[in-house]
């Protein structure tokens, strides 16, 4: 017999599924690392929100009527946090998923013992980790600029952020899992831009015509911004905003389970 570099018994089968917690952690860890390593993702999820936070806090560009007697930074920070969630959980997520499908990642992972629901759960956990980092960094910078959030509302803000991440994450999976990578890239960026400017993140419903304000209020972007504003500025829980986010999340998840394709 010729010598083989593989001792007999090396590959003796021992099949079985890994522990669920271990699989979820491994998947979420890789997804998080890839997001943090990706230059364009950092630009989208951190640098642009950071630039807007600094610019809108320090420069006198917003109409003063919008924040009455508040500090500019107190008014803008909850909205920047909403933008951060939109950027990472939705736009970044959708684009990454679109290209991961193109490169056969989903098929690769779907061929392992990883249950299908875990493919999505790993991405959502990673989205929550990324949002946590965004909130810590953006909140830290805002604090340096004099941000003083309502202490009573912190827990409500956390709830809104988690719900917002799940909602935009589900919408991101819905978009990223359905179309070709290039179409996902274009649409995810357009939606980001439209929701930022006209979806209730930088403009408050009270400053808008009534019919339009109603529409903005039931958009996930408007709901998240209002929920965070209520929590961090007024220290109150906005049940209406959370209900809107929950409905969008449920709708997106229900449709995505039917439309998400592996390739």
């Amino acid at each position: 017999m010729t010598t083989s570099r593989f001792a007999p018994g090396t590959f003796t089968p021992a099949p079985g599924r890994g522990r669920l917690g271990h699989m979820l952690a491994a998947h979420a860890r890789v997804e998080t690392a890839l997001t943090l390593r990706h230059g364009e993702q950092i630009l989208l999820t951190l640098l642009i929100p950071l630039a807007l936070l600094l610019g809108l806090s320090l420069l006198d560009v917003l109409p003063a009527g919008e924040f009455a007697d508040m500090d500019r930074v107190d008014w803008i920070t909850p909205r920047i946090l909403a933008l951060a969630v939109l950027s990472s959980a939705f736009t970044g997520q959708a684009i990454a998923l679109g290209f991961d499908r193109r490169y056969g990642v989903l098929k690769r992972l779907a061929a392992t013992a990883l249950p299908r629901w875990l493919l999505v759960a790993g991405r959502l956990v990673a989205a929550l980790v990324v949002v946590t980092l965004q909130v810590l960094i953006l909140g830290g910078v805002a604090a340096l600029l004099g941000w003083s959030p309502s202490a009573a509302g912190i827990a409500f803000a956390v709830a809104a952020l988690v719900l917002g991440t799940l909602c935009f994450g589900a919408l991101g999976v819905l978009l990223g899992g359905a179309l070709k990578a290039e179409a996902v890239l274009a649409l995810a960026n357009i939606v980001w831009f439209v929701l930022l400017l006209a979806g209730g993140i930088l403009m408050v419903p009270s400053a808008l015509p009534e019919a339009y304000a109603t529409v903005v209020g039931i958009l996930p972007s408007g709901a998240l911004a209002e929920g965070l504003h209520a929590a961090l500025v007024d220290g109150t829980f906005s049940a209406g905003s959370c209900a809107v986010l929950a409905v969008w999340a449920a709708l997106a998840a229900a449709i995505a389970t039917r439309t998400t394709k592996l390739t």
Partner: peptide, 27 residues
């Protein structure tokens, strides 16, 4: 699969460890 399949930015070892985590007694 034909033509493989992996995240473009993933490190070789990272990818293999992810797939290994899905098995009970991996190599």
């Amino acid at each position: 699969p034909q033509g493989g399949g992996a995240y473009p930015g993933v490190h070789a070892e990272e990818m293999l460890r992810l797939v290994a985590a899905c098995a009970a007694e991996p190599l």
